[in-house]
Design a protein around this nucleic acid. Structure first.
Lengths: 328, 328
DNA sequence: TTATATTAGGTAAACGATTACCCAATTAAA
DNA sequence: TTTAATTGGGTAATCGTTTACCTAATATAA
């Protein structure tokens, strides 16, 4: 193997305690000559401290785990990047786990992360997985976009989807449009129901009745956007669409183009998320940006606060923002 | 903290050695009763083995590091997923590092991965970073799409870009087209020069002269695709375009649409990479698929072979495949 | 001059597992 | 009946650090 602190100590004619203190800058009473000598030897020999030995002693690995459904999903890859950047800045490494929303995989990953003694875990996971793991050992955790109540405190980070969708819809109304469709997912989750209620609230607040025939709910996919437009058009005409996410918006635009309906002239389309490709499609998509990257940073900050046992908020809600492009 | 193997041993009235053997299935001479008793206590107490202590002793962390420019890049997020899936199947965790192609960050990450005693590293990095780190401590490494020669053996994984582009161009030729443009990046890298030579070779092999006016080289971006079409059209007409990657193809299609040139009727467009969005654009993009996910798997298989000191190939070259969609 | 700080470092016990070796009792073989 | 093998465990060193405490010499204060 490679050189250890003990061997460095011998080369420098000091004890390993002294080397340790010097390298960790905890050496108030070590002479400058000795320090210099140690540093020289360390560099010459290419000494690399063994962090696992250190971790064993100090009970901290400076590593966190993240469990997400799939890094290939644009939403989560941005989240992962936000997390990793923030973690790196604060001296932590991150172990990446893809769960595919599979409960078995979630449990397994939580188990190995605990075995590897990560200092904390950031995750989007089912209620069961989280509860079970917290029974086994309490470990700092922050949950993303999941509202679970447990005995032990976990951090939670949400996005204010309702206000986001409200503003999106209001934006179309302010452009003088009253006939606004809504195409989104029908999965029962906090975020999707919030987006729907934001849409309805904006209409009602502006004296427009909610017309259920203008609402099409299926899933967060391009196909849903495509089908939604076609189905709604059978019953109603509209001048604007609020989409539950950007993929739906892409599908909707494709369907409209097929019918020679111009976007944005004839129909204005607004998405949600602001995934990377949204600015590259034709026309570039106006959308409600979720602060995905920032969510990652906030999650890390929250987690590290928990790790340090600081006083803190255990729940924070982030704001969305409207990105104006050409589709409206 | 949580319960240790020693405490489990006391509860079971055996030594910690016995518990360790039982839990690691290395207990040929322990009675079934004792085994059962130990397992019961382990479950009841929710014992979680401390992997860092284990790692210190057995000198293996069952963890690998990956250093990539950016997980948000669709290419690398797919690669990361391929790596993580393969690693998980073989019992390894992966630490994710984003380098932004920054040499300082590469070096820093390599250092912390070595300190954390990862069993190996998969990376795309500059020559300098790799050489320097290998001087400090030899650690199993596999490089992706980078050709570096060092004293110590490192694994390498390439994609056969030349054949890929050759087949793409040949595909257009077989459709009866002779006027084929080429828009790509001018960065000097193995992959980009291979794609160019694949294009030229296909033309020459089929009795078509290479016309430099049909070639536009800038960068791997949408803008390059857009500008490339417009610039080339000033000098030449063409019926097909081979694009250096899918983003360029997207830009090219946009430019053609602007000029009322229909794809694929008037001009056929073919991309490279097969990133996720390519199947969703309009028209869905015909492209040369790189086996990105598989590269990840091959990389971890190679790395684990190196870790185990197995006999193996230190260089493998993967094939591309043509994905036929609507743009041709 | 004596007592007290200050400076410069060393000792050795952890941290929580694994594992090479040891031992004793029982069983099987000679 | 004696010897050898098998079975069921235990002892203690070790992995590479950190750190609470100790010591001894020198400097400073009273």
């Amino acid at each position: 193997m490679s050189i250890t602190i003990k061997e460095i100590a011998e080369l420098a004619n000091v004890s390993s305690a002294t080397v340790s203190k010097v390298l960790n800058d905890k050496a108030p009473y070590i002479s400058d000559e000795t320090k210099k000598r140690i540093f020289e030897i360390v560099n010459r020999e290419g000494y690399i401290p063994n962090a696992v030995a250190k971790s064993l002693k100090v009970k901290s690995t400076k590593t966190i785990g993240i469990i997400i459904p799939d890094v290939m999903n644009l939403f989560f890859s941005e989240l992962a990047r936000g997390i990793e950047d923030a973690a790196e800045k604060r001296g932590y490494s991150v172990i990446l786990c893809n769960s595919d929303n599979n409960e078995e995989k979630e449990k397994k990953y939580i188990q190995v992360l605990q075995e590897k003694m990560v200092d904390g875990i950031i995750l989007t996971a089912s209620e069961k997985s989280v509860e079970r793991s917290l029974n086994m050992r309490k470990i700092p955790m922050v949950l993303l976009d999941r509202d679970i109540n447990t005995d032990v405190k976990v951090g939670k980070i949400f996005v204010d989807n309702e206000t986001g969708e409200y503003e999106a819809c209001k934006y179309l109304i302010d452009k003088g449009i009253k006939e606004i469709a809504f195409i989104s997912s029908n999965v029962i989750s906090k975020s999707s129901s919030q987006r729907l209620s934001g849409y309805k609230k904006a209409l009602l607040d502006n004296g427009i009745d909610v017309d259920e025939d203008l609402i099409y709910l299926d899933s967060y996919t391009i196909e849903t956007g495509f089908n939604g437009v076609n189905e709604i058009l059978k019953k109603r005409n509209f001048k604007g669409i609020c989409c539950g996410n950007d993929l739906i918006a892409i599908g909707a635009i494709n369907a409209l183009e097929d019918k020679q309906i111009n976007v944005p002239r004839d129909v204005k389309v607004i998405g949600f998320d602001d995934i990377q490709i949204s600015k590259y499609i034709n026309p570039p998509l106006t959308t409600v940006k979720q602060p995905i990257y920032q969510m990652g940073k906030e999650a890390v900050d929250m987690l590290i606060n928990m790790i340090h046992g600081n006083e803190m908020e255990y729940e924070i809600i982030l704001k969305t923002s409207l990105i104006e492009r050409m589709s409206c």
